[in-house]
């Protein structure tokens, strides 16, 4: 879709409903995907998306054109998602995880073998702490110290949670892969 980002922002700043709708149409899909990554189910993701867009429209005045709009929108959504998790007290007691490594490294899997929905699902199946930190570190690209600050946890916790997330993802994907390779590949999600 072609659109003029500046005009869109300007329209939203003027509380123009058409512009607001267009912004939603343009970015809603990507932002919803973020919401799905940070929540456990679609209903929660929808709630987060809704809250995020309200925040976006309310705070669009604070957006300056010095950074890409999408970057700003993503950060609003991520923060909204984190707030959502905080409100549900999911992020309250994230502890260091003692990783009992069994010495057998899970085989690296190639993500290209999976559908997006499968990837989303394996992320959603992670324990909430792991899920959040995985998202922040691996996808959003925050550093562990930033994550620690954001979530009010120690850097060590962030690291250990991430390591666990990574291990779990490998396990799950290997399982999925075996599943995919098997006869029930066409499982409907």
């Amino acid at each position: 879709m072609t659109f003029n980002e500046q005009e869109l922002v300007q329209g939203c700043k003027q509380r123009n409903r058409t512009a607001q709708r267009q912004l939603y149409d343009v970015f809603g899909g990507k932002l919803f995907a973020i919401c799905l990554r940070y929540t456990k189910n679609r209903i929660d993701a929808e709630d987060v998306l809704q809250d995020a867009f309200i925040k976006i429209y309310e705070n669009i005045d604070s957006f300056r054109n010095d950074s890409p709009l999408e970057y700003w929108l993503r950060s609003v959504v991520v923060n909204t998602a984190l707030n959502h998790l905080r409100q549900q007290k999911h992020l309250k007691d994230l502890d260091d995880i003692d990783l009992h490594h069994n010495g057998i490294a899970d085989k690296e899997v190639t993500l290209g073998d999976f559908q997006l929905r499968q990837l989303m699902e394996v992320i959603q199946e992670l324990p909430i702490g792991c899920q959040t930190i995985f998202n922040l570190y691996a996808i959003e690209g925050y550093q562990h110290n930033e994550i620690a600050q954001k979530l009010g946890i120690s850097e060590g916790t962030s690291k250990s949670q991430y390591a666990r997330a990574r291990g779990l993802l490998q396990q799950k994907l290997n399982k999925e892969k075996r599943f995919n390779d098997g006869s029930v590949r066409d499982k409907q999600f």
Binding site: A33, G112, F114
Partner: peptide, 22 residues
């Protein structure tokens, strides 16, 4: 890999979301 797979991921939100926003 993950970033590549998910960074540009997009999933159409249901119509009810916009209705709620509106």
């Amino acid at each position: 890999q993950w970033r590549k797979a998910l960074k540009e991921a997009s999933e159409a939100p249901p119509q009810s979301v916009w209705e709620g926003i509106e």
